[in-house]
Amino acid sequence: MTHTRTLALGAVSALALSAGAAFADGEVNIYSYRQPELIQPLMDAFTQETGIKTNVLFLDKGLVERITAEGANSPADVILTVDIARLTEAKDGGVTQPLNDEGINSQIPAQYRDTDGNWFGLTTRGRVLYASKDRVSEDAITYEELADPKWKGRICMRDGQHSYNIGLFASMVAHHGADYTEKWLAGLKQNLVKKPDGNDRAQAKAIHAGECDLGLANTYYLGLMQTNEKEPEEKEWAKSVKVLFPNAADRGTHVNISGMALTKNAPNKDNAVKLMEFLASDEAQTIYAEQVFEYPVGPNAKASEIVAGFGAIKADTLPLVDIAANRKTASELVDKVGLNDGATQ
């Protein structure tokens, strides 16, 4: 009996694939946590350059579980995802295989790839501060300063357990240790104007409304808001804030990544490697970074004009694997200090 799965081809059409069937030489199957419309320009450019057809399955959750359930007959060749947590989850879940490719390694700095070659970063997003243009005179700040009482009642943020924040907090553990980070989180908590809520865009909205002066957020959301024709009010939120890159004068700003991985049982491995080599190229990273308003990691790839307009970013050089190793500790500390309860009177 043939077991058929439906994969979204780009954002518009669908293609039925049989997991047990033979695959054509000219295809590669991508399982993606990234929205199809964000990666379709990349897929189109790859097909135009190589003639290899791309089939994209978009998933908003359960990617590792799906590949595990499909087993040796999984049609997945390449994983595209965001956040170091999801990349390490894929590796730890046993659904990736190591790849030692000289071309890819030369394009992706060591801090943005797995030491065993199980995943590779493609673009970075800074965990920065949106600051009110009207009420914040500072043009420089550090993460450490967020615990300074001068910011009491002036900071807003999303759920402390969200992966974006856990990544930042894990970097603080990596740099300063758990004891320092616990005290720092307690200080940050006391400076919150309200309980953590909303998403990153909501922090810009709150600043625009005068509810807070600083908001923790990823850089790329600003680009999304600046170009949101469907919800023009978001453009107003974006106009009201400036980007502060914490620790620009010392270790650099914490960044997370979007990345790729070769699946354990990739049926079209040769084509998968070709796709990954393409995605690591300056050409592809420039296209990708333009689409998602992120910073390319390639040595000669260019950030878009909108992203360059946020200001120069000096990224923390601490390897992401070292940061990821402290995520559990960071999560425990968030609960220990009661960060999501907001400031206590």
Rank of each mutant, 00 (worst) to 15 (best):
His3Thr: 14
Thr4Trp: 13
Arg5Val: 13
Leu7His: 13
Val12Ile: 00
Ala16Ser: 15
Ser18Tyr: 05
Ala22Asp: 09
Val28Asp: 02
Ile30Phe: 03
Tyr33Lys: 13
Arg34Met: 08
Pro36Phe: 01
Pro36Asn: 09
Leu38Met: 10
Leu42Gly: 01
Leu42Thr: 06
Met43Asn: 06
Asp44Gly: 00
Thr47Asn: 11
Gln48Pro: 04
Glu49Tyr: 02
Val56Met: 08
Val56Phe: 03
Leu57Trp: 02
Phe58Gln: 00
Phe58Ser: 00
Leu63Thr: 08
Ile67Asn: 08
Ala69Trp: 02
Pro75Leu: 12
Ala85Ser: 15
Ala85Met: 09
Lys91Asn: 07
Gly93Ile: 06
Gln97Pro: 06
Leu99Ser: 04
Asp101Cys: 05
Ile104Gln: 07
Asn105Gly: 07
Ile108Pro: 06
Pro109Asp: 12
Arg113Trp: 05
Leu122His: 04
Thr124Glu: 14
Leu129Phe: 15
Ala131Asp: 04
Lys133Asn: 14
Asp139Ala: 04
Thr142Tyr: 02
Lys150Thr: 14
Trp151Thr: 00
Ile155His: 01
Arg158Lys: 13
Gly160Tyr: 11
Asn165Met: 11
Asn165Tyr: 04
Ile166Asp: 01
Ala170Gln: 07
His175Ile: 03
His175Thr: 11
His175Pro: 03
Asp179Ile: 00
Tyr180Pro: 13
Gln190Phe: 07
Gln190Glu: 15
Asp197Arg: 11
Asp200Val: 01
Arg201Trp: 07
Lys205Leu: 08
Ala209Phe: 08
Leu214Asp: 05
Tyr220Glu: 12
Tyr221Ser: 09
Gly223His: 12
Met225Gly: 09
Thr227Asn: 13
Asn228Glu: 09
Lys230Trp: 06
Lys230Asn: 12
Lys235Arg: 15
Lys235Trp: 06
Lys239Val: 00
Lys239Leu: 00
Lys242Cys: 04
Ala248Gln: 15
Gly252Pro: 06
Thr263Pro: 07
Asn265Asp: 13
Asn265Thr: 07
Ala266Pro: 11
Asp270Trp: 08
Asp270His: 12
Val273Phe: 02
Lys274Pro: 07
Phe278Tyr: 14
Phe278Gly: 10
Phe278Cys: 04
Ala280Cys: 06
Glu283Met: 01
Ala284Tyr: 04
Gln285His: 08
Gln285Asp: 13
Ile287His: 04
Gln291Pro: 05
Val292Ile: 14
Glu294Cys: 12
Lys302Val: 05
Ser304Tyr: 07
Ala308Arg: 15
Ala308Leu: 14
Gly311Arg: 10
Ile313Asp: 02
Ile313Ala: 04
Lys314Tyr: 07
Leu318Ile: 15
Pro319Asp: 13
Ile323Trp: 03
Lys328Asp: 12
Thr329Gln: 09
Val337Trp: 02
Asn340Thr: 02
Asp341Val: 05
Thr344Pro: 02
